[in-house]
Design a protein around this nucleic acid. Structure first.
Length: 280
DNA sequence: CGATCTACCTGATGGC
DNA sequence: TGCCATCAGGTAGATC
């Protein structure tokens, strides 16, 4: 479900909703799979209780909630994870609610995750970017323009990979998954299996622009909610970027540029949508 | 080394 | 109605 745009929308929602709130109690009902990095419930819950949340940051598809104690909660939503705000503890508990954080000011933050690929853990805030393997290895953040397009071109050509797996490689660029790699490559007019080292400077520039354009647009429309309705924001509201998808899940629809049907293929084990005429 | 697979899970969907 | 196969936003680890 959640790629960079959805996680960024969630980050912004959390920033408004939970920063400044104090954690009264933490409940991990059922199995401990959601907090599997910790050996006991207490090792996750005790460091949080009594702390105030001071900031919410994003690293690729990870969320980092900084606490006033010097610790931080790291969250990854996996394929189907949601963070949901509950106004009161009386609100009906959704199936597959794995973690419930109750605030002193009232209200709760709940982690719901049917497929249990997501997780939460607590660590020292200073260690997040230094000690947590998955975070130290993350590539650059495409929402910031810290990378110039000619340097980007050097990186792309140096990797010698097919473009789609390259875009989805979190070590290269942080936050792009199956939906947005397809949308970016259509916007750039490049095939998913083009060799990265074969791109002309003009094509590099189109790819660079497409990454920024697609991700910013997707955040603007508050992310993509697919037909299963699994992605919703902190308040339970779906995004609208799926209405602007040009290729993802658009099999058989007319290409917006050339009117030929969008085709569905496989890139490794992942479904891949593209236009055979417009993407070269 | 990179490319390709498999495992981890539940749930929705479609064919028979 | 049920049973079975397939597929789904991600990632790590095994295997070739």
């Amino acid at each position: 479900m959640p790629e960079l745009p959805e996680v960024e929308v969630m980050r912004r929602d959390l920033e408004r909703e939970v920063v400044g709130k104090r954690i009264k109690s933490v409940d991990v009902p059922g199995s401990m799979r959601a907090i599997r990095r910790h050996r006991q419930r207490k090792l996750f819950t005790a460091p949080l209780e009594g702390c105030k949340i001071t900031a919410v940051d994003r690293r690729g598809k990870y969320l980092v909630l900084t606490l006033d104690s010097g610790d931080a909660i790291v969250v990854h939503l996996g394929m189907a994870g949601q963070l949901r705000r509950a106004k009161t503890a009386r609100e009906k508990m959704a199936k597959h609610t794995h973690v419930v954080i109750s605030f002193s000011q009232g209200g709760q933050l709940r982690f719901v995750d049917p497929r249990t690929f997501g997780e939460m853990f607590v660590t020292h805030a200073d260690d997040v970017d230094k000690e947590v393997e998955e975070l130290t290895h993350l590539g650059y953040n495409p929402l910031e323009t810290a990378v110039s397009w000619d340097y980007f071109g050097e990186l792309v050509r140096a990797r010698k990979a097919k473009l789609k797996p390259l875009l989805m490689d979190q070590k290269f660029i942080a936050g792009i998954g199956n939906i947005y790699s397809d949308e970016i490559l259509f916007t750039a007019g490049l095939r998913w299996d083009r060799a990265s080292e074969s791109l002309s400077p003009e094509e590099v520039r189109r790819l660079y622009r497409a990454i920024s354009e697609v991700l910013h647009d997707a955040v603007k429309y508050r992310g993509s909610s697919l037909s299963d309705g699994q992605y919703v924001d902190l308040f339970g509201k779906p995004g609208e970027y799926q209405l602007h998808h040009k290729v993802y899940a658009q099999e058989g629809q007319a290409c917006r540029r050339c009117r030929r049907p969008i085709v569905k293929g496989k890139a490794g084990s992942r479904s891949t949508y593209y236009c055979e005429a417009c993407q070269v």
